[in-house]
């Protein structure tokens, strides 16, 4: 009975899963029991053999030509500048430019409304968009002298809509929500718009690649909702 008990412990002991007290008990037993001692040594050696066998199974090096073969295959791949990262960067620049222009315009409008002309130069910020070859941002007030913007502005005012509707900013597809959230943050003071505008001015400088974990957006955004409602009203009136 005693040997049967310890025999059941042997595998666990060989695998290092036995507690200190049990291990001491097993050692004491095997010291006086030649059968269990032999069994213990066998199992312990077997576990070592298994470990070594698996190690031998995965031991080895790729051939000396491995890296050169890989490089040859990589050479057949699209060049690094065609990596999607580049497209992402373009898209990112466009988004940054759109956001910067939106904020700047909002700041100017808000400042004009409350305190007269703002200290932020909207033209400077709009240049950011112009510098980016993929930027689709344009403010109708800045892109031409046509009367669309002002007409829209006057028309909007006539409808009693907030001032920030008076300027149109074309945002890249899919980035409208981000731009609105950003403007909402600036308007509510959660984001320092002036500081952000200054940062945006430096966007022509080399950008640092940094992975971002973007938190899911929390809804609702009051001004976004207001904008949607205003747009709906506008549509009804048209």
């Amino acid at each position: 009975m005693s040997c049967e008990k310890y025999s059941n412990w042997l595998m666990g002991a060989a695998l290092g899963a036995l507690g200190d007290a049990e291990m001491a008990e097993l050692r004491a037993h095997t010291a006086g029991c030649s059968h269990c001692r032999s069994e213990w040594e066998t199992i312990r050696a077997l576990v070592v053999a298994v470990d070594r066998g698996v190690e031998a199974m995965v031991a080895g090096e790729p051939s000396a030509q491995f890296v050169s073969r890989l490089r040859a295959r990589i050479a057949e791949e699209p060049t690094p500048s065609a990596w999607p990262l580049f497209a992402w960067r373009q898209f990112g620049l466009a988004t940054l430019a759109a956001a910067a222009a939106t904020i700047a315009i909002l700041l100017v409008r808000t400042a004009e409304h409350e305190h007269g002309p703002a200290s932020v130069d909207v033209n400077t910020l709009t240049k950011i968009g112009q510098q980016s070859p993929v930027s689709r941002v344009s403010s109708l007030e800045n892109t031409s002298a046509n009367g669309n913007a002002s007409r829209r502005h006057r028309g909007a005012s006539a409808h009693g809509r907030p001032d920030f509707f008076s300027t149109e900013v074309l945002v890249p597809r899919g980035q409208m929500a981000a731009a609105l959230v950003l403007s909402e943050g600036v308007s509510t003071g959660k984001i320092d718009g002036v500081q952000l505008a200054r940062l945006a001015e430096r966007s022509a400088e080399p950008l640092e690649w940094r992975a971002l974990d973007i938190e899911p957006l929390a809804a609702p955004y009051p001004r976004v909702e207001a904008m949607k409602a205003a747009n709906a009203d506008d549509g009804d009136q048209n």
Binding site: P80, S81, W83, L85, F86, R89, Q90, L93, S132, P133, E205, P206, L207, W209
Partner: peptide
């Protein structure tokens, strides 16, 4: 290339770093 060159210090450098 021209496009990349117009973005000094951004995409091209990133690609090289990558």
């Amino acid at each position: 290339d021209a496009l990349a060159a117009s973005l000094p210090g951004t995409a091209v450098n990133d690609d090289a770093a990558l």
